[in-house]
């Protein structure tokens, strides 16, 4: 978008080509954007950092609540952000159950949930969690950089966040999660 020829002054040919060059740049940029559609996911920037300090009350009375101090036991754990009102969370329940059966400790953070709804949810889908903290104002969710439900974080034995999985864990993704958990042992 530049101006051009001048009377009595020799026209600089390069300026005339500038608009076309800029436009070509635009086309190239947009082509990249079209071929590699941007993911709508927002990655947490907390990977590799220690789990922030928090302490959540139990979401249902018979299962203990959750605090960051629960994550320094030496073994990696899976931190699952979920809610009974979230449809994909019900869809990933069998995969969480499979992970629990292979000996993984899973802790839940229930986002904006009620006891009654959670009981109904567990009656329908089973309960894979060792501990469930109630996060009624999404505070822990923000603290670890999660932007929706469900999301799963792998926290290693020293309380460092090692991996984030966004969305529900599909059956074919269970292996990946297991491998990442193994990696987190070192």
């Amino acid at each position: 978008m530049s101006d051009t020829s001048v009377p009595l002054v020799k026209t600089s040919g390069l300026t005339l080509w500038l608009p076309l060059a800029l436009f070509s740049g635009f086309v190239a940029l947009v082509l990249v954007g079209l071929l590699r559609p941007a993911s709508r996911e927002v990655q947490s920037a907390m990977i590799g950092k220690p789990l922030p300090a928090f302490s959540l009350k139990p979401a249902i009375p018979d299962i203990p609540g959750l605090a960051h101090t629960n994550f320094v036991g030496g073994k990696p754990r899976l931190l699952n952000i979920f809610a009974s009102w979230c449809v994909p969370c019900a869809a990933e329940a069998p995969q969480l159950e499979a992970l629990r059966r292979s000996g993984i400790e899973i802790d839940g953070v229930a986002i904006r949930d009620t006891q009654a709804d959670l009981r109904l949810f567990f009656a329908r889908n089973g309960n894979p969690y060792s501990r469930i903290g109630a996060d009624n104002v999404s505070a822990v969710q923000f603290a670890i950089g999660s932007s929706g439900v469900p999301e799963s974080f792998i926290v290693d034995g020293r309380g460092i966040i090692r991996y984030q999985h966004i969305g529900d864990i599909r059956p074919e993704q269970v292996e990946i999660i297991l491998a990442r958990l193994k990696e987190a042992e070192h």
Binding site: A83, V87, R112, D113, T114
Partner: peptide
């Protein structure tokens, strides 16, 4: 129809 009705939590808004 299904998504907006079920994906709505029942808690009141945060303070």
């Amino acid at each position: 129809v299904a998504v907006p009705t079920t994906a709505q939590d029942k808690l009141p808004p945060a303070p």
